[in-house]
Amino acid sequence: MTDTRTFSLSRLPALATVGIFLVVVVAGFAIFAQGFWTPNNASTIVITASVIMIASLGQLLVVISGGFDLSIGGVLPLTAVVYASLTTAGVPMLAAMAVCLAVGIAVGLVHTYFIVHLKINPLITTLATMSITAGLAFTLANGQTLTVPPEAGILGDRAIGTIPWHVILMIVLVVLMHLVLAHTLLGRRIYMVGGNPEAARLAGVRVTVIGGSVYVFSGFFAAVAGIVTASQLLAASGAMGSTITMQSLAAVVLGGAALTGGRGSVPGAVIGVLLLGVIANGMSILHVPSFYQQVVTGLVLLAAVTLSRLQERARRSG
């Protein structure tokens, strides 16, 4: 397989470093944390990581294109609440899912309009829409916690063997997005637009279309994450997903994406999500108080970006 994206010389070392770090962390926990190295715990990590992974896919696309999307933390509860309301009202599950996805895509289209056409800063735009969507979620749920009928929670409940459907869905989406990013025209153009939008425009790339599409993708994935959350928990409220924005950003950055655009990959994001999940899980098993866990997560993030910066510097001057 000749793949200029994931196996390029300059990109591999950074990704490999984080990967090695993940292996070390896993090995460390496996040795010192009893109950960590079990198939059951592995599945726990994957189950809790699947929502973050799905949301991170959207975040990754946006970050590669040179922007970022804070609104995930609002779209997730909004779609979860919409899903709960519709299924409770007797709307068929698939129709309810379609409506939720449409909501996510609509938010993405709004972003496209403001960010790509009116050239408003993505930070401001998505901050605003995060507030709007989260507010709508609370309004729609009337500040309450809505329940999801058990028959609408099959994504969370049904499993093939021991693997829940939502995990399979997550894996399918991960593989699909990897193929899109690394092996299609669209993927190449997203990297190029993120690398230098003006150069891409002058070379005839439809920068507005490419730059806008990533927000639509991101809205879509946030909606999927919302549906999965509601199915997993059989409940939905506006207070859900308050940490998903920062977690998804942290994960893609850990995985080698640069907030300046043009860098990042799906395998990297997977490693980033797993690293965050493993650290949280392992420390809980070691009974480290939650306050320290936050500190450690922050330190790991800082260490990872510092390392990648040092590597880049070494490459440039060498």
């Binding site: 059951n40 715990n41 726990t44 409940a235 409220s237 899980n281 098993i285």
Partner: peptide
């Protein structure tokens, strides 16, 4: 006896319990 931070929301309770049960 264990003490954990289960938070105040459904998702925080879910995630924290999944992990706690491993131990």
């Amino acid at each position: 006896g264990l003490q954990g931070d289960l938070g105040l929301t459904i998702d925080s309770g879910y995630d924290a319990t999944l992990t706690a049960l491993q131990t």
